Amino acid sequence: MKIVGKFILLLAGIAALYFGLSQVNWSKLFELDEKQEKLEKRLGKLVINELENTMTIIRDDSVKQIVDSLFNPLASKNGIPRKSYKIMVVEDSQINAFALPDRHIVLTTGIINFLDSANYLSAILAHEMAHCEKKHVMKSLITQFGLDLLLSGSGTSEVTNFLTGQAFSRKLEREADEQALVYLEEARVDPKSLQQVMELFDVYLTGDLDLTWASTHPSPSDRKAYIEAKIETLDADADYRSPIQSSTWKKLQLLIENYSPEVD
């Protein structure tokens, strides 16, 4: 009898689950996902237009080629379509990088000049790519502004300011850090680069530099602990290499330092 009773309870549970699922308006949910995807593309265009109107975009093929040399392995080795991303470098002394809707990643000249290793920039790119892949950008925007306001298309300046100067939640930052380590590992870029970036920011955070990326994120010292723990679970004997030579990295910094926008 006990077995029969358990079987009846199991059938009742399955029936209840089936009934619950049957009450879900799946077409409405899929429609909402489609709307959010369209919204993300529209927001991406609006925010990029806002940046182009307020900041100087570095439009130099040599700069683009070197930055692509760092980003492309992160995408290709992790099965992520490179064409879905747009990487921009903007002229700004703030030491910052941020992800925008529709898979846009922005680097400032400040962060490129500040870092002394190409691997460090790979770590930053991996972190921002993780935000995009895990849809952290739209989650944060919807939480901050609400879906109705975003759908209305108003407040582009406020959205842009939020994305360029605010941190994600501590939970989302940790998810991005841990996913970035996986991306680096697959691309055969030393995952310790992210830990070393945290150490670098931790040292300089109390100085006079405008470390926007560090100051708007959780404390680097707090992040180092779980990053180090995650690294210990990765392949300790892996053969890591930099995607570009140190001379190419220096060339990138020199190109940015001497950049002069063309005047029509």
Rank of each mutant, 00 (worst) to 15 (best):
N119H: 02
S247L: 11
I14P: 00
P73D: 02
T143K: 15
K45I: 13
L205D: 08
K45A: 15
E128R: 08
L107H: 04
W213R: 11
N25W: 02
G153R: 06
R82A: 12
E52P: 00
W213L: 14
M1E: 03
Q179T: 08
K6Q: 07
K77F: 05
W26K: 07
S242W: 00
T212L: 12
L200M: 10
E128S: 09
L234I: 12
Y120S: 13
E34N: 11
S260W: 01
A123I: 07
T212N: 12
S242R: 03
P81I: 08
K171E: 11
Y183Q: 04
K38S: 10
V90S: 01
T108K: 01
Q23L: 15
I8N: 08
K230W: 01
T56R: 04
L39I: 11
V89Q: 09
S169K: 07
L141R: 02
N113Y: 06
S152A: 05
D237F: 07
S246V: 14
L32T: 10
N119A: 07
M198S: 08
I87Q: 07
A236E: 11
I256S: 01
D190R: 14
Q245T: 12
H217Q: 10
G155Y: 04
E232F: 07
S93P: 03
R241N: 10
E262W: 00
T248H: 11
V4L: 10
Q253T: 02
V24Y: 10
K192D: 08
L252T: 00
S221F: 04
N25P: 04
A12L: 13
R170H: 11
V189D: 07
Q144F: 02
I231F: 05
A118L: 02
Q166M: 11
Y183S: 03
I95V: 15
K139S: 13
A130E: 04
L252Q: 01
F30C: 08
L107F: 09
V106M: 10
S219C: 06
D264Y: 05
D33N: 10
M138V: 02
K230P: 01
L141W: 00
I244E: 02
I48E: 10
S260Y: 07
I95K: 03
V263E: 12
G165T: 05
M88T: 14
L43T: 13
N25K: 14
Y240I: 04
V63Y: 02
K135M: 06
P261K: 12
G165S: 12
S62M: 09
S221C: 04
S117N: 13
R42W: 06
G5S: 08
S154T: 13
R174A: 13
Y226G: 12
L234M: 14
T233N: 12
T56S: 03
E173R: 03
V203P: 00
K139G: 04
M129Y: 01
K77N: 14
